[in-house]
Nucleic acid binder design. Structure first.
Length: 529
RNA sequence: GGCCCCGUCGUCUAGCGGUCUAGGACAUCGGCCUUUCACGCCGGUAACACGGGUUCGAUUCCCGUCGGGGUCACCA
């Protein structure tokens, strides 16, 4: 038997981290067994523009590499994959349920039904619907219809015994049938509800493993009932614990995402993303640009495999030490048996740690390819000719391990701007260029060395600096800090020889000249103001 | 409230009766390395919710308490 799993998103307009984890586990299960992963759209209750609300979700899956074998855009033997287009199929199954007596038409109006329900609640009795409005004869039914009554279809649930099934992560489950009300499966207008649609689709699409979040556990008995009433084999069920908010045990909720920004770690991640988004001109509201949503990571430049690696471990582990997984590793090692039963809270810092690890595993060329679109979108480079690629390559090589996400390249604007535009950080400028009395002198002398340097390779530059220090009888520190501020405008950055090398002789000379002018201006009382 | 689920360092987790003075990772705190920053390396702080059983022996099994959470729609 080949394994067929599915993920059934509602077209909500966004994909959040918890949903991705569920999808990942489904995808892994299918991929590791040569089975199929199916995307089915739960839009039975849908609003108008399903396509628009679905686009970001499909884009998220594509970006993450979670490809689907059947579903929107790719089609498949069981099309359509939109529940809104499967109404006829559902109605056919409802008829079967009606014919077999597993369901009935209920002609009560909702007030009448609710009245019974609240009466039971007030009496603190378990609620059993009287089924008073279930017709016992065609004449009675015709009479009600003549009165203008309409009917919903309800499941005729058992009122004794237990519903038993095995859950692959939670073990043997048992629920009292008596506690299950007669759920509505079809509205008076003929449209069908989730529980019915879901089961019918799982049957029709031949789903073998229903892996979903635990909030569906309580739906399972009524679904089991439908499967059984239809004589369909039960799929394997696996209910995953929910993903909790950062720093809490509460379930991650789409509605509360703006509030998560108060969490400190979360906020830090959010703000670093904000800086990157600003360079890219991406619109950011707490509801649309939020570390709970997958789009955030795509915008900022996280590696998909890092996100997947983190999510894999949020509720699953292989053993006591393995943490780093490539996609292939994940496919090979995943198992439902080792899924954790308790909820796990989302930790942005650990996600970022994985991002760094996966980035470090990439070659300089691979990192260049990732970073290039960011520079282009920010408008800092034009085109991607050999010269530009070479320039970017040098910067990326020098940045080395400081690059955690692709968007981090945007912290190095100084290497992608005209010399005359280079801003000097005021504090760094004061400390390194104005306060040390000899800074200007050393800098102008060093410029002469740069002009005359025979070899601009890192090794050549290092010996250049050494001979400079020897000649002027100073420690390297005394020139290095001033030099970095003059060249980059900042007090921190990567190695000074890399900095010189990346900029090249001409730009170094220009920037030193410009810095010297600013020092002179600052020193004269009649200066800037 | 009914039903159901869960409970090991701040966080993610290992642990399926003795190997646990409880291991790893992230975070955090020291130190080293170093021309800044980062990386890297070394080290530290930090957990079995509580109470009863069962057992020669419980983090591990059972019960209870407490705590947290999910779910109770003509939503999905």
């Amino acid at each position: 038997m080949t394994i067929r799993t599915r993920f059934a998103p509602s077209p909500t307009g966004y994909l959040h981290i918890g949903g991705v984890r569920t999808a990942l586990y489904n995808w892994l299960l299918a991929r590791q067994s040569g089975g199929q992963f199916i995307l089915r759209i739960d839009d039975t209750d849908a609003q108008r523009n399903v396509a628009a609300a679905l686009a970001p979700i499909l884009a998220g899956f594509r970006w993450l590499g979670l490809d689907w074998d059947e579903g929107p855009e790719v089609g498949g033997p069981h099309a359509p994959y939109y529940q809104s287009e499967r109404g006829d199929i559902y109605r056919r199954y409802v008829q079967r349920l009606l014919d077999s007596g597993a369901a009935y038409r209920d002609y009560s109006n909702s007030e009448e039904y609710q009245a019974e329900r609240t009466a039971a609640e007030q009496a603190k009795q378990p609620f059993w619907y009287s089924r008073r409005w279930m017709a016992t004869s065609p004449e009675q039914e015709a009479g009600w219809i003549a009165e203008g009554r309409t009917a919903v279809v309800r499941l005729k649930m058992p009122r004794e015994g237990r519903c038993e099934f095995t859950d692959l992560v939670r073990g043997d489950m048992a629920f009292d049938w008596a506690l299950e009300p007669d759920h509505v499966i079809q509205r008076a207008d003929g449209s069908c509800l989730y529980n019915l649609a879901s089961v019918v689709d799982d049957i029709e699409l031949e789903i073998t493993h229903v892996v979903r979040s635990i909030e569906h556990l309580s739906n399972t008995p009524r679904q089991v009932f439908i499967f059984q009433a239809l004589d369909a084999p039960l799929p394997h069920f696996a209910h995953l614990p929910y993903v909790a908010e950062p720093g809490s045990q509460n379930k991650l909720s789409k509605r509360k995402i703006a509030g998560y920004l108060k969490n400190l770690d979360f906020k830090r991640l959010y703000e670093s993303g904000l800086a990157i988004a600003a360079h890219l001109g991406v619109e950011t509201t707490p509801e649309s640009f939020n570390p709970v949503l997958i789009e955030f990571y795509q915008t900022v430049g996280y590696l998909p495999e890092a996100i997947l690696n983190y999510l894999l471990l949020l509720g699953w582990s292989l053993d006591d030490k393995t943490e780093y997984f490539t996609i292939d590793d994940m496919v090979r090692s995943f198992s439902l048996e080792r899924v954790i039963k308790s909820p796990a809270s989302f930790d942005p810092q650990k996600l970022t740690a994985f991002a760094g690890q996966h980035m470090a595993a990439l070659s300089v060329d691979q990192r260049c390819a990732l970073v290039l679109p960011f520079l282009q979108r920010a408008g800092w480079i034009r085109g991607d000719g050999a010269e530009i690629r070479d320039q970017v390559r040098q910067v990326v090589a020098a940045i080395d391990q400081r690059l955690v996400v692709a968007g981090d390249i945007l912290n190095y604007r100084e290497f992608f701007m005209p010399d005359t535009d280079l801003p000097l950080d005021p504090a760094a400028f004061q400390k390194r260029l104005v306060q040390p009395a000899d800074a200007a002198h050393l800098l102008s002398e060093f410029k002469k060395f740069v002009v005359a340097a025979p070899d601009f390779s890192p090794a050549g530059l290092e010996s250049l600096l050494q001979s400079f220090c020897d000649q002027f009888q100073i420690q390297p520190n005394q020139i290095i800090h001033a030099l970095r501020v003059a060249l980059t405008g900042k007090s921190t950055g990567f190695g000074i020889f890399d900095t010189l090398g990346v900029l090249g002789r001409e730009r170094c000379v220009n920037r030193i000249d410009l810095a010297l002018q600013k020092i002179a201006t600052a020193a004269s009382p009649a200066g800037e103001h």
